[in-house]
Nucleic acid binder design. Structure first.
Lengths: 340, 340
DNA sequence: TGACGCCACTGAACCGCATTAGTACATTCT
DNA sequence: AGAATGTACTAATGCGGTTCAGTGGCGTCA
């Protein structure tokens, strides 16, 4: 900046004013300064900016998953991609970290905030009784909870959520209409807010219709557990005629398992996957799936965070309800008992 | 730091010395200062540190892929996870960005470097004739090329690479031993260095053995193209008896396509996937695959980068050759022509 | 025509840390 | 005892910006 000032024949402060669009310089000077800055390929040092109170121009994103669980999951990359799109426009950086669990995640938030590394964070996989929101509150760290329940009362935090309850209701509607009365929901990690929401909704929907053979089983989202649970429930007496999987990976594993057991999908058992991805169209039968736009989800979350950073109020935003894409893995329930 | 200085009854500089392990303070004072710092939960401001010449304590990672291509790909998340592990130990941040193409990627490097946002970067998906290495050289930005060919002569850059050539040779060996003479390699993006390496190696291996019905076809890694190419080559006259796919997603799509065409895997056609993941064990038949430890790959790359940042020399490191895990999708070639 | 206010700009302080030059005191050497 | 050396610490400076309190020139109005 000193160089620019010298070359433009003005003081350093004038340069600062000119470049930041503040009043105090004539348009002539402003243009001249801009031009010189351009020529010199000048870029403000984020460090210096941050030091003089401007914030770090960076937002944080922590993924609390053991490394081995980071498997075939298109959701996060797409989410991050959407987030990026919005952040990049505003020249905000994304600081990314993978940790083991939420405790570590809290520690990361504390460190980042203390080190003035980030201006805000995006929190994913909210849980029932989540320690992270409390920490953010305590620190005064602006944050957006992605996928959180809207009932959280942490005034400083925004929430972006999908209506899992509505989606689950729609799935049950569809299956019920097809004649399915025995349904098992192979859920994701217990403790995750959306897992609980889905489980609660399924139970409510079942009760409303007087269905007794409907239940949820939690898993760790892995293909292994998905397969294991599938085997267990299909081998029980009075096995379900429809299975709802909380992700595409388990759904695929489930179909493979069912096939091994001699059950045909969808003739003997219908399958619905909660996440839609290329996987769902990669095996026969193509999987009926709940589809949502993860990239857009990310965009929305990032937009909310930037609004928060601009001093806007915390908000709760609902993204569109996932749509059920009916493909080949759902069909009318057998009227008779499935074989053996 | 001012507070610490006051509370400990010393000057700010003494605090700096004490906390950074520099000489100039007695052990007594050092301990006292440390204790006070601890009590106050003090953390150095990275901005201030960066400003006084210490660097940004951050490394950059750019993914140049259109958002829609970021599909089911476990490789990157695992890689990043490994990178994180090493960086976290040293309290280095990871700045992450997704862009459309390598040109944008170069622009990001320039900006990051000009803004003093990063101390170094990790470059993935190196290409033949890659503009990025030149930019890094020009800027003097320390970098590690992940998956690069070792022959690049950019003295400042380290390279971490896997021996695709060796792996490809091993695969051809195996298939040849099984009696396969007509092989098609459904490759990834043309222009990627490792794609070219694999293609070259396959051609060389074929020539060495006098095989004429061996070829590579490039794709965009998507299941759609994988399926399309599979259909095309299997419907040709004298179709291949073995297919090598450059990723697991295409391999899966390929098996599905082959099945649709009435070809059985592995009886009619053998399939090898270049990347091993849960996907390979999620369908029947389980896919034979080339397996490597992506997390470890990430660790290695990050380690090289930290070495570079510490002023170490640029190095070229080879990670273990991917191993071929033989499962159920490879078998001896039919001696007779496959049906129709 | 002098007081007033506005505009365009400058000088200096400051952000939080690292670093270098300098200082006060104690110890050792001659 | 005075000089030389060393130790433990302090004061001052700079990193690259932002910002605030001036300052001088100029037009306006009474």
């Amino acid at each position: 900046m000193k160089d620019i000032a010298r070359r433009a024949g003005v003081s350093q402060s004038a340069v600062s004013f000119a470049l930041n669009g503040r009043p105090g310089v004539s348009e002539d000077t402003r243009d001249r300064v801009r031009q010189v800055a351009e020529e010199l390929g000048w870029r403000p040092s984020t460090a210096a900016r941050a030091l003089s109170g401007e914030g770090a121009a960076t937002v944080g994103f922590v993924l609390a998953r053991p490394a081995e669980t980071l498997g075939v999951d298109s959701f996060f990359l797409q989410l991050v991609s959407g987030i990026q799109e919005v952040l990049a426009e505003r020249h905000l950086g994304l600081l990314f970290q993978v940790v083991e669990d939420v405790e570590d995640e809290c520690a990361v938030y504390r460190r980042w905030w203390a080190e003035h590394r980030v201006d805000g964070v995006l929190v994913v996989d909210p849980r029932t009784d989540d320690p992270r929101t409390g920490v953010l509150d305590e620190l005064g760290l602006p944050g957006v909870v992605i996928g959180g329940a809207p009932d959280e009362r942490h005034p400083g935090l925004s929430t972006v959520w999908a209506d899992d309850a509505g989606a689950m209701a729609a799935v049950v509607d569809e299956l019920y209409a097809l004649g399915h009365r025995r349904i098992v929901h192979i859920a994701g990690l217990p403790g995750l807010a959306h897992t609980e929401r889905r489980i609660r909704t399924l139970r409510a929907e079942a009760e409303r219709r007087g269905l007794t053979a409907v239940k949820s089983v939690t898993t760790d989202y892995s293909d292994a557990e998905g397969a294991a649970v599938t085997r267990r429930v299909l081998e029980a007496s009075a096995p379900p005629t429809a299975l709802i999987y909380d992700n595409d990976v388990m759904a695929l594993a489930g179909v493979a398992t069912a096939t091994e057991l001699g059950r045909s999908v969808p003739a003997d058992v219908s399958v619905v996957a909660w996440e839609d991805s290329a996987l769902c169209r990669m095996v026969k039968p193509w999987l009926s799936a709940l589809s949502r736009d993860s990239v857009e989800f990310g965009r929305t979350a990032a937009t909310e965070l930037t609004a928060l950073l601009d001093g806007g109020p915390a908000r709760t935003v609902r993204v569109p309800v996932p749509r059920l894409i009916v493909r080949d893995s759902t069909a009318a329930a057998r009227t008779a008992r499935p074989p053996r």
